[in-house]
Design a protein around this nucleic acid. Sequence first.
DNA 1: TCAATAACGGAACGGTCCGTTTCGTTATGA
DNA 2: TCATAACGAAACGGACCGTTCCGTTATTGA
Lengths: 200, 200
Amino acid sequence: MMKTEKPTPPARRASIGAKRNPASQAAILAAARAVLAEEGYAGFSIDAVSRRAGAGKPTIYRWWKNRADLLMEVYSAEKAIITAVPTDDLGRDLTNHTRALWGFWSGTPSGRTFRALLAEAQSDPEALAVLREKFLPERLRDVRGLFNAAAARGDIPTEEVEARLALYLGFNWFYVLTDQLEAGQASIPAAMRLIAASTR
Amino acid sequence: MMKTEKPTPPARRASIGAKRNPASQAAILAAARAVLAEEGYAGFSIDAVSRRAGAGKPTIYRWWKNRADLLMEVYSAEKAIITAVPTDDLGRDLTNHTRALWGFWSGTPSGRTFRALLAEAQSDPEALAVLREKFLPERLRDVRGLFNAAAARGDIPTEEVEARLALYLGFNWFYVLTDQLEAGQASIPAAMRLIAASTR
DNA sequence: TCAATAACGGAACGGTCCGTTTCGTTATGA
DNA sequence: TCATAACGAAACGGACCGTTCCGTTATTGA
């Protein structure tokens, strides 16, 4: 396998006593982010992050259970300023939100992080459960709010919120997982219009 | 890591001369299928397949470039008898096709194989390219036919076929990747109706 | 004040897996 | 007949996993 090592100054940190060193936490998250940005999921290993951060592996395992755990925090640490305030047009809201999300995925390491997270969940049932029951619900709160608001207005049936949410999610997953965010942009408006269509 | 070894009779085969031994090919594919069925992507390694098949690793690498290559053949070897002949109702066609696909994914190791394939593509750009440009187009031929037929009838705009196909694909991916095929069945009809909706 | 506590980075551990090479064996096909 | 090539086995160097032990550092609380 490849071995693209960065001669970056390790910049290690010592213990600051019987408590967690925030500098180490930050260095590890930053290193994970950098590895993902530069090497993608293929290069993402605890060893690589450890080397890059100038941190010991035990320090990583002390605070994160496994790779999925670390990936989730890396993703969450990137606080996307994607606010989703419902107007009176669900289709427009969804289009705007999708464009913001794709911009976030493309313009930061977050797209790669998300892809890594989803891949990791395929080989770790426990990670998949956390993804399904904690990570996704949190990340979906705003979008779900858009659908709920539309349902409250009577624009869409309440009992179809789940199906439409799945359509929305899947649409985004398909393009990010196939690394086609660029080419897929043209499909956004039509897709969002269909997801938001009122069932008269 | 785990070590759940099967004491199954190795049942190895010798060379049959200066040509490929079909029995070895079959044994390797069957072993890969079995490993995926029993251990999922987590247990899928060339070593494990080699042991299980009673085959040498060089024999595997002689005929398959990498894991993704083997995964694709495992998936393709499972010839799903999912015919998609368009009627005059795209929504109904899609619902039927989706149910057949999910049954196929649930009732065979193919769901796990597909998940493994998608995960593998996240760490191997070359595998992703093959998936995108060869594997998916082949697998999507029939479904694309459904959309094209609907477009030919004037039920949906031709220029929206790509967007609707992406919605369809993503919907399936979301449920299979989150291992929620069972719970997601209720969402199928509504989702397919939206994807098939005519834009009057 | 001063020991118990705990985090830190490091090195090293046994183990798995990768992809390749080397080997002796087998049988084809020209 | 004999070059060719596939076969399984074994072993390779290297990467990575998750853990253990180490000496060091500084906090915490008795």
